[in-house]
Measured scan of single mutants.
Amino acid sequence: LVRYRTISKIPQITLNFVDLKGDPFLASPTSDREIIAPKIKERTHNVTEKVTQVLSLGADVLPEYKLQAPRIHRWTILHYSPFKAVWDWLILLLVIYTAVFTPYSAAFLLKETEEGPPATECGYACQPLAVVDLIVDIMFIVDILINFRTTYVNANEEVVSHPGRIAVHYFKGWFLIDMVAAIPFDLLIFGSGSEELIGLLKTARLLRLVRVARKLDRYSEYGAAVLFLLMCTFALIAHWLACIWYAIGNMEQPHMDSRIGWLHNLGDQIGKPYNSSGLGGPSIKDKYVTALYFTFSSLTSVGFGNVSPNTNSEKIFSICVMLIGSLMYASIFGNVSAIIQRLYSGTARYHTQMLRVREFIRFHQIPNPLRQRLEEYFQHAWSYTNGIDMNAVLKGFPECLQADICLHLNRSLLQHCKPFRGATKGCLRALAMKFKTTHAPPGDTLVHAGDLLTALYFISRGSIEILRGDVVVAILGKNDIFGEPLNLYARPGKSNGDVRALTYCDLHKIHR
């Protein structure tokens, strides 16, 4: 019993810090008490220290592992850092350059016999395009090294910054494609005289377009951006097909006994025919423009016929181009109408809503002055909100995010209106959640004399007048207030005048 009563005193000691020596009952000389009392004092002292730490809000209350900052290894790049964003855009520009100039170089340097010394005699450094290609190869190699040090988000939505895990993730992902696209074939085969082989191998750079397509997928929600990307894709495919079309004609031209190829026909049409040795002929500019003209006309199913396939190889390629053109029509131009419709969806919704308003007016036989006010209010409210119901949009977000959005939407009023000066951010967040926005066209009466005042109004834009009878008592403008002081009276009061809008007004109100 003594032991039980001794232990039962522990909660009292913990909360009230009572010393055991003052209790005459606990001072009985028993061996059990002498053993338990020192333990009680020690526990009391420890609990006292913990309570003191909690009340003082000291940093040592938290466990040590929670006080440590997340460790980022040296030379690790955050995937959302500004440097990584700028670097990704730079790589994107280099990939676009590669997609345009690599097929052009591979096709127009394929057994090209233009006048001038061969590239091997001039030297590697004197070729501007080769120098640019070398810079692109170096940048792609540097990009691989950067990807080995860039964080990523795993399946659990955690940012991984450990170098080993980053390397394994990159090896399992895009490393092989990036490595093949970054191989400097110019340096590996330079001086061997195989410019045709170098041009063909350099087309491996186009593998990076797969990554670019995935990154550009984030802009699919913007109709104008999608339309622009589709047109660029169409032009890029036409450019690639033009390079292939020229390569076919250029390879067949020296081996044909009869002059029936499209390059021969082009030379005869523009007065620059090929001679018996295969030299001469149109310039590279004429060849490229004509090839691009043929691919565009074939892809769009126009086909004027002034550039036509004559050999079997050219006919087979033309059939493939027609098939590609039909697929592009289905996948690209078939979506253009939907994209344009999405661009004008706001206008369509406006006309639909206006039609419903006019049908309501016609069905209920609203008189002319009231009908005009109804239409003007709808037009003004639509121009202010673009038909978007803010309350319906915010309803799907958590309250903390709703408060931040409301604070942002009402920031101008909260910053410049005098009653809100000096208020804490928590108070402003709470008030912003209570605001209701209303609009009024010129001549609209917001409050009639004798109406119950259940709200306090803040003028965000425009001006109003307060009338008693036919006498203008006051004219209020931006950041002015009218209405009933909230919670100042037990019952809502009545208006002693009319409140009429002089201009288009936007008002925020808080109800009782």
Rank of each mutant, 00 (worst) to 15 (best):
Y65N: 05
Q341M: 11
P184T: 01
M256V: 12
G267W: 01
D257I: 11
L216C: 09
L200R: 04
S194R: 11
T385A: 05
L327I: 05
H408Y: 08
M328I: 08
L94C: 15
A125Y: 13
Y274V: 03
I405W: 02
C427R: 01
A182L: 13
C406K: 04
Y246L: 01
T438P: 01
G267S: 01
R218H: 05
N154G: 13
H162Y: 05
F228R: 01
L343I: 05
V393L: 08
D133E: 15
V447Q: 01
I183G: 05
I166H: 01
D137T: 08
E195R: 12
T203A: 11
W240H: 01
I248D: 01
Q415W: 05
S277R: 09
G199R: 15
V212L: 13
C400N: 10
Q402S: 02
M139P: 01
K285L: 13
L90F: 11
N335H: 12
L134E: 01
F228M: 13
N250W: 06
S301Q: 10
R74P: 07
G396N: 07
G325F: 01
S308F: 01
L323M: 15
Q253P: 03
N306H: 01
I244Y: 01
Q253H: 03
V131Q: 05
C406S: 08
G280P: 01
G116R: 15
A403H: 03
D217R: 10
F363T: 13
L236I: 05
T437V: 11
Q341I: 04
A213Y: 08
A213K: 10
A403V: 04
L227T: 04
G116T: 14
R356M: 14
A224S: 05
T150K: 01
D268V: 14
L299W: 01
S258F: 15
A381K: 10
T424N: 14
T300P: 01
A69V: 06
Q68Y: 06
G396A: 13
L200T: 05
D217Y: 06
I361S: 06
Y246N: 01
K272I: 01
A430S: 11
K425S: 12
L428T: 12
P117E: 05
V132S: 03
I244A: 05
A130I: 05
I270A: 01
N156V: 09
S220A: 11
L201G: 01
A107N: 01
A204L: 11
Q127V: 06
A392C: 04
Q341P: 04
L188N: 10
L209R: 01
I135L: 07
Q365P: 01
W245K: 01
C427I: 14
K395I: 07
V160Q: 06
G325S: 01
G249D: 01
C232W: 01
D186V: 09
N275H: 04
C406Y: 08
Y274A: 01
K111I: 03
D268L: 14
R356S: 15
I237E: 01
E196S: 13
K436G: 09
L343R: 14
V212D: 04
K285N: 03
N386Y: 07
A430F: 09
G396R: 08
F333E: 03
Y246A: 01
C417V: 11
E375I: 15
F101M: 14
A423R: 01
F378M: 12
I189Q: 11
T98D: 03
L200C: 12
E314Y: 01
S313P: 14
N154P: 03
A125I: 15
R373D: 03
D444W: 08
A291H: 01
A423T: 03
F294A: 01
T437E: 05
Q365W: 01
R421M: 10
H264M: 01
L409S: 03
M179F: 12
E158D: 09
G334P: 04
M322H: 01
D186F: 12
E158M: 09
S276C: 04
I339V: 07
M390K: 06
L355F: 15
I77C: 05
G164F: 14
K395N: 05
L94Y: 01
H408K: 01
M179E: 01
L374M: 07
L394R: 02
L414P: 01
T98M: 01
P442V: 04
L201M: 01
A167T: 04
A330D: 04
Y104E: 01
P282C: 01
G193Y: 13
Y288M: 01
I361E: 01
G305P: 06
A242T: 01
F378P: 06
I135Q: 01
Q353M: 03
M433Y: 03
F294Y: 03
G223V: 04
I244Q: 01
N368L: 08
Q127P: 06
A235D: 01
Q379K: 11
L109M: 13
G249T: 03
K436R: 12
H448K: 03
W87K: 01
A423I: 10
I72W: 14
I146V: 05
K287H: 01
G281F: 01
A155I: 14
M139L: 14
F171V: 13
K84E: 01
K84D: 01
E64S: 06
G116W: 04
G173K: 04
R71A: 13
E221G: 13
G325D: 01
D143M: 01
F234Q: 13
I146Y: 01
T120W: 01
T113C: 01
A247L: 05
L343S: 12
L279R: 09
F363D: 01
V132D: 01
V226H: 03
K202I: 01
I77Y: 01
E375Y: 04
S161A: 09
T300C: 15
E252V: 01
H239G: 01
L370R: 01
W382R: 03
I270F: 03
V210N: 09
P70T: 08
P398Y: 01
C122D: 01
Y219C: 13
T233M: 11
N156L: 12
T347V: 04
N310H: 01
L355E: 11
D133H: 01
S298G: 14
A238Q: 01
V180C: 14
G443C: 01
M139E: 01
R214S: 05
F363V: 10
S81R: 10
M231Y: 12
T438K: 06
F333G: 03
Q365M: 04
M328A: 04
D88P: 01
V357M: 09
V86L: 15
E359S: 08
L266E: 01
K418E: 12
I405H: 02
L227C: 04
K111W: 14
D143E: 01
A423V: 08
S192W: 14
Y344D: 08
N265T: 14
H73L: 05
F333P: 05
L414N: 02
S297R: 01
T120E: 13
V160E: 14
L109T: 07
H408M: 03
Y344Q: 07
F296I: 13
L206V: 05
P367M: 03
T352Q: 11
H380Q: 05
I340D: 01
I72T: 15
L355T: 10
I366W: 01
V321G: 01
I96L: 07
N310L: 01
Y293P: 01
R429S: 04
I388R: 04
F185R: 04
Q269E: 01
Q253F: 15
T352V: 08
E195V: 14
A291T: 01
D186Y: 06
G443T: 01
G325R: 01
S297A: 03
Q402W: 03
A440G: 03
K215V: 03
K425M: 10
G123D: 04
R358W: 02
A213E: 05
D186C: 11
L446V: 08
R208A: 06
L206G: 04
G191R: 13
L263R: 01
V160L: 01
K111C: 03
I141K: 01
K111E: 11
P184W: 01
W174R: 04
E314I: 01
S161E: 10
M390P: 07
G303Y: 01
S298Y: 04
G164T: 13
G443W: 01
N154V: 11
F420C: 01
